[in-house]
Structures are given as structure tokens and as C-alpha cells.
Amino acid sequence: MPGRAAAWLARGVLAAVACSSVAWGTTTLPALVDQTRLDGAKDLILRNVPVSDAELDDLGPLLSRAMAEKDCMPAIDRSVAVIRLRLAENALASGAQVDARMGELDEAVRKSLGCAPADPYLWLVLFWLRNIRQGLSDANFDLLRMSYRLGPNEGWIVVKRSAMALAMFDALPSDLSSDVVAEFARLVKTELYTEAIDLLKGPGWAHRDKLLAGLAAVPQRNVDILTRTMADIGYDLDSRSPAERRIWQHKSNDRLDEPARMPPEASARP
């Protein structure tokens, strides 16, 4: 009898475990599937792969379900925010559903940051979003400061953040403009030359004097590599970019093509 009772007890425990496993799978597996699908789209977007609205249509129910969930789901919430960013960018490009998409992005980013506030990328996204919806303000600059404070050395964020900040460099408060210059110097110091060059010949070209002055504490070897590489692709850091040089040469050629003109007093002579 004791042996039979033990056997029945063991069977009961196994049955309970089996039921628990089934219940866990029923509730957890769909969430894991949802997260996998959302993460796949998020990863493509963060790698700057073009993703159209049509390609994201199937994720609509997942996005809505995630936003309706009151509990924190940090990984899913972050993926939702990134996907909402791409949908908002697509809306801006097409001019359709802009207000609705911006509102959905704002809600998604705030939900994600509410659960995981140490995300420097989403603070940057929120800064971009609020500037579009409300214009530049002191409160918005605090969002950019949060991004710098929480993610000073994450290379892929640095490139996106620097490009955005350099595009509005003249409007930045002094502490943030100093952050931009220091961030550029870190790119050169850590030998991320491709990223530094793209920024310098792009949105940073108008501010190259300040960016180059910020390299004073960077090893000279790194600065020399940057300077030589810029020269190799046609950018003279002391003078003109290729586009500026072409404009200058065009104007010079126009002047050379003009017929010589005699001064008025000379033409009046017999």
C-alpha cells in the first residue's frame, strides 16, 4: 500500500507539472512568437534597411496588442517604438496620416521609456519627434541631454545623434554644442574614421572649424589620417569641398569666357 500511494503521488505530481507546462506554453508561447516577429522588423529598421508600410501591415495587430498591454514588456515595447518610428518616417515621406502616426509614435516611445528609461536611442527619437510636433524648446533639449548622458559611447547611436545635432548646431545651447564637438572627437580618437568623415563632409562641413578645433586632445596620428583621407576624396579642410570647388571653377570659367570689354573712356576715343 505505501508503494502504491507513492506511485499515485508521483503520477499526480507529474500530471500537475504537465498541466502547468501546457498552461505556461499557452500563455507564453504566443508572446514569444510576437516578440520574435517584432524583433525581426526592429533589427531591419535599426540597420537602416528600407521597410515599407505594406511590409509592416501584418504587424498591425501585434502593435495594437502590445500598446494595450498595461504591464511592462521591455523588449516588445522597444521593438514597437522602433517600428512606429519607421511608420512615422514613411508617413512624413508620403504626406499621409502624419498626425496619426506621430501620435502613435509618441505613445509608443513614452511607454517604452516608462518601463526602461535608460535607453539613449529612444530619448533621441523623442527629441526628434517633439521638435517636429512642437518646435525647438528648452524642454526638448533636455531630451537630447538625456541621450548624451545615457549613451555617450554607443557608436551606432553616436552617428545618428551627431547627424541630427549638427544639422541644428547653431540653435543648440552651449553645453550641447560642446557635446557634439566632443562626440566627434571621440569618433576620431576611437578610429571610427568612416563615420567621422561622413559627418564632417555632410552636416558637419559648415562647422568644420569647431569640429577640427575639438581634436586638440586627439592623437596627432588619428588627426593626420582623418585629414589625409578627407584630402584623398577631395575635401581640403583649410579651403573648399568638391562642390564648392566646382562652383568656384564654374564661376572662374564664366569670367574667362566673357569677351574683353574696353572701359567707357577708351571706347570714346577716335
Rank of each mutant, 00 (worst) to 15 (best):
A171Q: 11
A171P: 03
E191P: 03
T194F: 11
A206H: 04
V181M: 02
F169G: 06
F169A: 12
Q220Y: 11
P219C: 06
E191R: 14
T194L: 10
S177A: 10
L172R: 03
E195K: 15
L176I: 15
G204N: 03
M168F: 07
L226H: 08
V218D: 00
P173I: 03
E183Y: 03
F169H: 13
D224N: 15
L215N: 04
M168W: 14
V223H: 13
P219S: 12
M168N: 13
G202T: 15
L176N: 10
A217T: 06
V223L: 08
F169E: 05
R221A: 13
D198H: 08
Y193T: 07
L187F: 06
V181D: 02
M168H: 11
L226N: 03
A217D: 14
G204M: 05
N222D: 12
P219M: 02
V180M: 06
V181Y: 02
L212N: 03
L200F: 05
D224V: 15
H207N: 13
L166M: 10
R208T: 03
L211E: 06
L226P: 05
D209Y: 05
S174H: 05
L166E: 02
L211I: 11
A216Q: 14
R186G: 04
R221G: 07
V218H: 03
A213W: 11
D179S: 11
P219F: 09
G214Y: 03
L212Y: 12
V188I: 14
L200K: 01
W205Y: 06
D179P: 09
I225C: 05
D224M: 08
V188L: 01
D209P: 11
K210A: 12
I197P: 01
D170V: 05
L166G: 03
L166S: 00
D224G: 02
D175W: 09
L199A: 05
A217C: 06
H207G: 06
K201W: 00
L212I: 05
A167I: 07
V223G: 07
L176Y: 10
F169Y: 14
L199E: 01
D175H: 12
L211R: 08
F184N: 14
L215M: 07
D175E: 12
P203N: 15
L192P: 10
G202S: 09
G204L: 08
A213D: 10
L199H: 02
Y193M: 15
G204W: 01
I197A: 01
Q220I: 15
Q220P: 15
A185N: 05
P173Y: 00
E195V: 09
Q220K: 14
S174W: 01
P203Y: 14
L199T: 08
Y193I: 08
V223E: 05
E195I: 09
V181I: 02
K201P: 03
A196W: 09
L200Q: 00
A196Y: 02
L211S: 06
A185E: 10
L172I: 01
S177K: 06
